[in-house]
Design a protein around this nucleic acid. Structure first.
Lengths: 213, 213
DNA sequence: TGTAAAATTAACTAACCAGTTAATTAGTAA
DNA sequence: TTACTAATTAACTGGTTAGTTAATTTTACA
């Protein structure tokens, strides 16, 4: 017997809302995102948003939780493949870079949140960033103990990696536009792909951790 | 004779609006900033905002133009003090770091804009970022020609410097909060001052530009 | 098949928003 | 003093916002 065709699918409806909310929040920010616009993106009645989520903030939290958990587990799982700090660092950067590039809403949402110390969802952002940073910090510290990294300040290096990668993703369209002009002779890496960028970043980070001075 | 006391001062009124708009936009973003809130911050009637500025976007542009010009001229003027790429690079980083730290609304506004490729004011942001990047790129290229820098990709290095410094400024309160907890043993640089940070960053960037591999 | 719960909708509300208007007040210059 | 202009205000407008309500449709299950 063929599977019964349902006119309703609550799980799919909820996920449809989250998926479209990710797009909308990452494009317009929390304040700029309208629940009317969201519901029409989903082709659902607006009351559906408030049926599945307590309010706008609750939806935003669900969105952030989903993507922060996804990046965290992606990085953590990849990390298990390595057994020495040098490879772990390389894996961390490569994995974050690839994820950011294939999920460009992550850099957009993250930079917006971090630009005001997580004004909308301080606790959640705080906890997630800490978990990811804790792994990064641990890699560097073990590397320092084993003598493969020198003069390590994890917090600064963490923002160096995340700042570089997130900004390169979010400014992509701006950089492509800039490349078309030729009044100033600058290379904006408009055609660089993510692999080239992460290979360069890894090479440079390794160089800066190789010696004390 | 004592100077006449005026009840009105149009220049001061306009500047009062810009100063408070900087605070408000950097805290809440473009969409989240309310012109009613702004006018009451200024203790002025809301119509005053629209008397001095065409509309909300016009005010936002005035705000961005003011701070982008300020950082640009600060960096450009400092740059004139040096006569070799190594000192110029150090000066660039130190000057940007100090400015960002003493004008924390700059990182907040910049990261918000860059997180969606300048959705609100693409042309203005674009032109300003290009001017600053052009200087940075020029320093690195001259350094490469003279042999003091190796394997330079200015665009990536630019976002490395700006990303690191801007994020360290905007996350300051988050990092101070994190330092109070002790469930995970991580140093969040909560007590680092801007000089320590820029000295470290300069040291590391110099190391990464010293050799090809 | 009947019924209760879950999912969905149209229509509504009250607050807020950017921006306008027309009137009023203060400064200027003759 | 007068008369003009610039600065300032209270009160308003029309549209948008997050969120609610009560009714309706679909589904699950006994």
């Amino acid at each position: 017997m063929a599977k019964k065709i349902y006119k309703r699918d609550p799980v799919a409806s909820k996920q449809l809302i989250v998926d479209n909310a990710i797009k909308l929040f990452s494009k317009k920010g929390y304040a700029g995102a309208s629940m009317d616009e969201l519901s029409s993106m989903c082709h659902l009645n607006k009351a559906m948003v408030f049926y599945y989520f307590k309010n706008k903030k609750g939806l935003y939290e669900a969105v952030m939780e989903e993507i922060l958990q996804e990046i965290y587990y992606t990085v953590i799982e990849e990390n298990k493949l390595h057994d020495n700090p040098m490879d772990e660092l390389e894996g961390f950067i490569k994995t974050y870079a690839l994820f950011a590039c294939t999920h460009p809403y992550l850099p957009a949402l993250l930079l917006k949140e971090l630009s005001d110390s997580g004004a909308v969802i301080p606790e959640l952002l705080f906890a997630s960033m800490r978990k990811l940073f804790s792994l990064f910090s641990d890699i560097l510290k073990r590397g320092e103990e084993q003598g493969c990294f020198k003069d390590v300040v994890p917090m600064i290096l963490y923002f160096m990696v995340l700042g570089t990668l997130n900004l390169l993703v979010t400014t992509k369209s701006l950089r492509i536009e800039a490349a078309k002009l030729d009044d100033i002779d600058v290379d904006t890496c408009a055609t660089c792909d993510i692999d080239e960028i992460s290979v360069y970043l890894i090479k440079k980070i390794k160089l800066m951790l190789k010696e004390d001075r």
